[in-house]
């Protein structure tokens, strides 16, 4: 196996395991905030690892850059969504 393929296999597998762990946490954790924590870990780190793993497979530098952009955009949207949900939980707890 070429070293590039071994690298891809290693990182994508690690990313997939993180997604699995995150999903498990999302289903099993007791309250909204811990579930959010599990979800954003999977989104950020899991997707990041998969993107890093796929980088050696890109044909061109621009294709790699596009992958990194996908990860950055997913980071931005995941972070915002988590903050919004956490804010809603906080407001509901403290009452209007």
């Amino acid at each position: 196996m070429a070293p590039a393929d071994a690298f891809t296999l290693l990182f994508v597998t690690a990313g997939a395991i993180l997604f699995l762990a995150g999903t498990l946490g999302l289903l099993r954790f007791p309250d909204t905030l811990s579930r959010l924590h599990a979800l954003s870990k999977a989104d950020n780190l899991g997707l990041g690892l998969i993107v890093i793993g796929l980088l050696p497979q890109c044909d061109s530098v621009t294709a790699g850059l596009k992958l990194v952009c996908v990860w950055l955009l997913a980071q931005l949207s995941a972070a915002t969504a988590s903050q919004l949900i956490a804010g809603a939980v906080y407001r509901r707890k403290s009452g209007p």
Partner: peptide, 17 residues
Amino acid sequence: DVVPEPLAYLAQTLPPF
């Protein structure tokens, strides 16, 4: 009803992209 800060931030950051 309310515009949470993260939403305002997203609305300022994301549109150019």
